[in-house]
Simulated scan of single mutants.
Amino acid sequence: MYLFLFYARSDTERLQSLTEKQAQQIAENTLYIKELEDRERVLAQNIEELLVEIKEINAEVARWREACELEVEAGKNEIIERNKVVDILKQELEKTRAALDISNGKLKLKEELAATAMAAQAAAERSLQLSDSRASGLRERIEELTRQLDEAESRVRNSHKIRHVCWPWRALKVNPANGATGRVQNARRMLPEMQALLHYNV
Rank of each mutant, 00 (worst) to 15 (best):
M1T: 05
Y2P: 04
L5M: 07
F6T: 00
F6A: 12
F6G: 06
Y7R: 03
A8L: 13
S10E: 14
S10K: 13
L15D: 12
Q16T: 09
S17H: 11
S17V: 10
L18A: 15
T19V: 14
T19Y: 11
K21Y: 10
I26R: 08
I26N: 07
I26F: 07
I26H: 04
A27D: 08
N29F: 12
T30V: 10
L31K: 06
I33W: 06
I33P: 01
I33A: 15
I33E: 08
K34W: 04
K34T: 08
E35S: 13
L36C: 09
R39Y: 04
R41T: 01
V42A: 15
V42C: 05
A44H: 01
I47K: 09
E48V: 03
E48W: 04
E48M: 03
E49Q: 14
K55Y: 05
N58F: 03
V61K: 07
V61P: 01
A62P: 00
R65N: 10
R65M: 03
E71H: 05
V72T: 10
E73Q: 10
A74S: 12
A74R: 09
G75S: 13
K76G: 04
K76H: 05
N77E: 14
N77P: 04
E78N: 13
E78A: 15
I79T: 11
I79M: 09
R82T: 05
V85M: 07
V86K: 08
V86Y: 09
I88C: 08
Q91I: 07
Q91F: 03
Q91R: 13
T96W: 14
T96F: 09
A98M: 09
A98P: 01
A98L: 11
L100R: 02
S103K: 15
N104I: 13
K108M: 01
L109Q: 12
L109W: 01
K110S: 11
E112F: 01
E112V: 02
T116C: 05
A117Q: 09
A119Y: 04
A120K: 13
A120M: 10
Q121S: 08
Q121N: 07
A124Q: 13
E125R: 08
R126D: 03
S127T: 10
Q129F: 15
A135Q: 11
A135N: 12
A135S: 13
G137C: 12
G137P: 00
G137F: 13
L138F: 10
L138E: 05
E140S: 14
E140P: 01
E144C: 02
Q148R: 09
D150C: 01
D150V: 07
E151A: 06
S154C: 00
S154P: 00
V156Y: 03
R157Y: 02
N158Y: 03
H160I: 02
I162M: 11
V165M: 12
W167N: 06
P168L: 05
W169H: 04
R170T: 09
A171E: 10
A171D: 07
L172S: 01
K173Q: 14
P176G: 03
A187D: 00
M190T: 00
P192C: 03
M194C: 08
H199K: 09
Y200C: 07
N201A: 02
N201W: 11
